[in-house]
Amino acid sequence: MQNRSPAFWLFLTPVILALGIVVVIPFIYGLFYSFTDWNGLRATQFIGLEHYINLFQEQEFMNSIWFTIKFAVASVLLLNFFGLALALIVTRNIKTNNLLRTVFFMPNLIGGLILGFIWQFIFISVFGDVGDLLGVEGMKGWLSTTETGFWGLVILTSWQMAGYIMIIYIAYLENIPKELIEAAKIDGASSFQRFKNITFPLVAPAFTISMFLTLSTSFKIYDQNLSLTNGGPYNSTQMVAMEIVRTAFSDNQMSYAQAKAVIFFLIVAVVALTQVYYNKKREVEM
């Protein structure tokens, strides 16, 4: 670091400035406000840890954390499964390779808010009609119970992000030397053995990145949640981000919401860093 030329810092300045203005400074402000009784307009006194003590006793906040964790686990598993599966499909020598890649990636280009409304229509109207037609009770009344709301969100997120994760896996899959696979073939390894012993360990770094991305996004998800279920029924499908926004803007408890946001930040940071640390340890150097 010490031998960097001025040009290095010159090039870095815009990024550092931007990061400082939109991330670091607001973060410090927020941290400060969480210890006060700030109501969005003015703060009159410093109240120390009161918000932090209260928030751990609030049932609704705890419910939303628990719901978010369940959601994150389900969607991380599904996302990586589908991401890898799609990547394996499109790295085979099929004619429509490029078309498929585009198609699979497409959902990711649509905004979460719009996707939420589209899927709301699918879950409520299309599922309902199909259920009527086939006489399947389980397809009716989606999003009106906590369970269906949960799976609705998981399906929506998997559908949207799987293509993105696929791209990352493709990059790593295409980097695997053909020689290794060929050698294994000559040695008589079955296709499952080849996948398990060669492909899988070599795409491990992709797992690190994909897990990191999926984990942090599924924790922070907000727009899909807002447009698909809006927390309903009875706030049971409300994730942490949404709970915080509601506390801030519906309940008007700005500084309390800020304290919740700080806790939320800590949770996401700890989870994501632990995950990266463990995954890194498992990677194989080529």
């Binding site: 119970t145 029924p233 009875y234 706030n235 519906s250 309940d251």
Partner: peptide
């Protein structure tokens, strides 16, 4: 009270409607 009608009463009503 702020957000009581929607955040408390209505949510409880929804829970009642769901039979919980």
């Amino acid at each position: 009270p702020t957000n009581w009608t929607e955040g408390s009463l209505a949510v409880n009503m929804q829970q009642y409607l769901s039979g919980d």
